[in-house]
Design a binder for these strands. Structure first.
Lengths: 148, 148
DNA sequence: CCTGAAAAGGTGGGACC
DNA sequence: GGTCCCACCTTTTCAGG
């Protein structure tokens, strides 16, 4: 992908509501040209969508944790992600190399809610869990796009 | 926070570019009322901003990993997050409970770039690293807002 | 792949209940 | 808080190079 497209993606990663007018100024093209490029980036799936960045504390989700999981019976077919997808407290699910099978990022209201969630995870996916509580978040979800 | 605001935040978390017109239909208010509520949510910091969701593979960042870090000298003042902030490959930095001090989420092009990044992390923050490579991502960054 | 222009519709205030 | 209204700006499309 070339420089102009990268600049567009970088700008929209920082501010997803930038108008095509502003975007056009930054990259030095006409509004229509930028519009076309953005549509193409969306169609190609480079831009997968737009999301509001929400403050979890303000929503009462003040406890974040990593949960590493491992099947109790590694010989059985592994559909843990499917089984866990219905739990909305699980924000992300990564399949990982190493001793654990999956790493989950979860958000809950308080320690009691975490306890309940861990029980749900264990029973839903037949796994053991190893939990690492997040104490604070110096930074998160930075749009790490470096321009050429 | 009450039900209508939660519905608005939930909708914008899924589609950050929803128009106030569409939003108004969903929550059953007038366009202006919704507009006011969104502005308040933005001012209060509940909505921290808007971002394009970018496909990392399409940008050539096809390797994701977790990097747990621990200071070589735990008695020294700990400014690792500050020292690491300049590395754009680090998407998130969490201070965690447990054996490690911080958990990083990093994105790089390939294994070689990961090796270089780990060296940079170790020398910049005077830490040891323990890295867990992500093999696949069943889901990520789900807007886990449950409505009342 | 870009430009330019014109229609359609959304955004962002103010006045008022 | 909410509604109604209006000026302005953006988005979106289309003809043309």
């Amino acid at each position: 992908m070339e420089e102009t497209d990268r600049a567009i993606v970088a700008a929209l990663a920082v501010d997803g509501r930038l108008s095509y007018t502003d975007l056009a100024e930054r990259v030095g093209l006409s509004v229509s040209a930028v519009h076309q490029r953005v549509r193409r980036l969306e169609q190609r799936g480079v831009i997968k969508g737009y999301a509001a960045k929400v403050d979890h504390d303000a929503l009462g989700l003040s406890l974040t944790a990593f949960v590493a999981i491992r099947p109790l019976d590694p010989s059985q077919p592994d559909d843990a992600p499917d089984r866990l997808a219905k739990l909305p407290q699980i924000e992300s699910c990564y399949s990982v190399a190493g001793e654990d099978f999956y790493m989950l990022l979860v958000r809950v209201e308080n320690p009691l809610a975490l306890e309940r969630l861990l029980q749900e995870i264990r029973s839903a996916a037949n796994v053991t869990t190893r939990t690492t509580v997040v104490l604070s978040t110096p930074y998160e979800s930075r749009p790490g796009i470096r321009q050429a």
